[in-house]
Amino acid sequence: MKKPTKLNKRSIVLVQLILVTSIIVILGLNIFNCNPNKMVLDTKPVKYFKIEKLIDELSFEENAFSDFKENVVAVEGFVEDINSLNNRQTVILRDKENRNTSVICDMQKDQTVLIDSLELGDQVTIKGIFKGALKDIILLNCIIFNQTNQ
């Protein structure tokens, strides 16, 4: 068997160095540039809710959602309000019975066209990062969810 020459040794070291650097750069980019908007776009929801079920669960147990907090979920409900308060686009979903609790969906900026096509009372499914609940349930980085974007 041929002994590795000095040049070959250098090449091996160089390749190893490139590999290690690449891994560090990729990991670094993932850690530091974790983009929640992209996360919502690319990730399949860990849970799909009809809004009635979500509100029911909240009324029974405040910590009912700890399993999917900070995860992407999809919620199907009826448009109660669309507003641009605080210079942000927000869609608020309610259930059929129009109970006191709603789902506040803070939308991604590129959703404008889809939001403009919505009307109050429309049935819609919204995907976003589940943050928790005060009086209402809060989802951030939301997008309108349909067959084409998932």
Binding site: F32, N33, C34, K131, G132, L134
Partner: peptide, 11 residues
């Protein structure tokens, strides 16, 4: 909710 604060950088 403290986790609904939005920052410029993820870090």
């Amino acid at each position: 909710l403290m986790n609904t604060f939005v920052f410029e950088k993820a870090l």
